[in-house]
Amino acid sequence: MSRRLFTHSMLVIAKRDFYAHFRSPSTTLFLFIYFITGAAFWAVSLGRLVVVPSYFQFLIVGLTVLGIYNTSFNYMNVVSTEVRRGYMKYLLALPFNRGGLTVGRVLAGAAQGMAFVAILLAFAVAMMGLPSPLGTLIILGTIVALSICLSSLGLAIATHFRPEMIDPMSDIVGLALIFTSTLYYPPNLMPEPMRIISVGNVLSAGANLMRAGFGLQQASLQDATSLLIWSLVFGVLSIQGYYRQLKELG
């Protein structure tokens, strides 16, 4: 019974948040415009300017990963608004299992990232061709792991910091993650200290694995391990933080 309630709670909350996100076509359209103009103008021109082999393809994958970040990580805005407005207590009044509610929030953020990236991925495939069956597996696996990881990271920030600190913290973490990753530039162009940081960066790991899926580089066990470890760490932190918030409310 308890397991059924857990699963039911998880699915209901994940479905509710998922539909709520796509009920706002303006946000989805904004992200899509951002990606398309980035790919059609930015990547095309920089791809011809920069003397890095296949830089256009390199950047397209980077922008796709950025799309996952923009949706999954920014899911924290939903949760932080609920924390700030005290809306969470209404969720507690529902006949839901708290564990299911917590895991449902992580899955909702991840599902949004995965759904949105499907559009970007279709564009990337149109530009770069279909990946091999193994490459497809690597790409899909990376998208799932990265979405869960970033959604958990966002949730961990939204639940571990005071409301007035949530926005600055998420902005700082976001900027640090984006600019020290391999989303825009390959590691061989980076200065040495940055190259070291980029190795442990979860966005780098995701982008490198997806590039490997598209056959642009070799798949690395280090990236896969890094992505899994961060997913576990952020997953535990987010569940712990959200559960604590629920507990504080009674």
Partner: peptide, 9 residues
């Protein structure tokens, strides 16, 4: 961004 890419232009 521009500093790093500068090496490849």
């Amino acid at each position: 961004f521009a500093f790093i890419l500068s090496n490849a232009v």
